[in-house]
């Protein structure tokens, strides 16, 4: 598939995934739409083009792994995993319901493709560092990807993990910050300013790049860069928009962190998310 066709396919797929995410959360009556919509382009591009894994290899010890450290964004991951055949799409409406494998935050062993329990923010990068060390010991060539939220990196453990990844020169480790600029209590810059994330990471020994996290060309280029081993862990800061694709969410970033859409709002959102239009 040429690059233009790849990008067109990603755009169409991600629009469908956005619809899945909002339908799941509306049905659940709770969840985190904003951060799921900001992350989904990054996650789908990873699974469709770069993660050496696949539903048939979900338990292969030598697989690439993706750790969603910002566990509240898991509706995006569930939608992507179902799309790629890790489990049936019929499960999607069971999100957050009693007895469902689709827990409110990721849990190992519930459905194939979930690599770590996350949701208590700040823990996933450490786990990814351990997986990267394990892959190196086994010499299996696996690459470990970890996505964090920008608010999440206020957690001190993230910076401990950054130090350790740098010490061990983990060039099989890639961190992605889904920088959607908002967290529960307000804008990140007001709650606890972080910028410059890249300068901080570079001073911790990481190689960095910054991209538009909704621009498929940028994402593809960044992932290609990230896969080149250069003796250090790599960080992609992806500028994203919380609630991307739904105008009434994009205009109220903070509000839509952890509030479910009702049926009426869902209809309004779905009207803006026509895969045929965006995919063309």
């Amino acid at each position: 598939m040429d690059r233009q066709a790849t990008i067109a396919t990603l755009a169409a797929t991600c629009t469908r995934l956005r619809r899945d995410i909002l339908e799941m959360i509306t049905h659940a009556g709770s969840g985190h739409p904003g951060g799921s919509l900001s992350a989904v382009d990054l996650i789908e591009t990873l699974y469709s083009k770069h993660l050496r894994q696949g539903a048939q290899r979900a338990n292969d010890p030598a697989r690439d792994r993706f750790v969603l450290s910002k566990g509240h964004g898991v509706p995006a991951l569930y939608a992507v995993l179902a799309h790629h055949g890790y489990f049936s799409r019929d499960l999607l409406p069971t999100l957050r319901k009693l007895g469902s494998p689709l827990q409110g935050h990721p849990v190992v062993g519930t459905v194939p493709g979930i690599e770590a329990c996350t949701g208590s923010l700040g823990q996933g990068l450490s786990v990814a560092v351990g997986m990267a060390l394990g892959a190196r010991l086994d010499g299996n060539g696996a690459r470990i990807w970890c996505m964090m939220g920008d608010g999440e990196i206020q957690e001190g453990q993230v910076w401990e993990a950054m130090m350790s990844a740098s010490k061990y020169r983990l060039d099989n480790l890639v961190a992605i910050v889904d920088s959607n600029k908002a967290q529960i209590d307000g804008l990140v810059k007001d709650v606890m300013p972080l910028e410059s994330i890249e300068e901080k990471a570079r001073s911790f020994g990481w190689l960095t790049t910054r991209i538009d996290g909704h621009h498929y060309g940028h994402i593809l280029d960044a992932y290609e860069w990230a896969e080149k081993p250069e003796g250090a862990p790599k960080l992609i800061v992806a500028d994203t928009i919380k609630g991307k694709g739904v105008s009434f969410m994009e205009s109220e970033l903070v509000k839509w962190h952890g509030v479910a859409t009702n049926k009426e709002q869902l209809e309004k959102a779905l009207a803006e998310l026509d895969p045929e239009v965006l995919g063309s």
């Binding site: 770590a116 450490s126 560092v129 351990g130 997986m131 060390l133 394990g134 892959a135 010991l137 453990q157």
Partner: peptide, 11 residues
């Protein structure tokens, strides 16, 4: 956390 990752990677 790193120990947990090593454990999940089979160690």
């Amino acid at each position: 956390g790193v120990a947990a990752g090593l454990g999940l990677a089979g160690k």
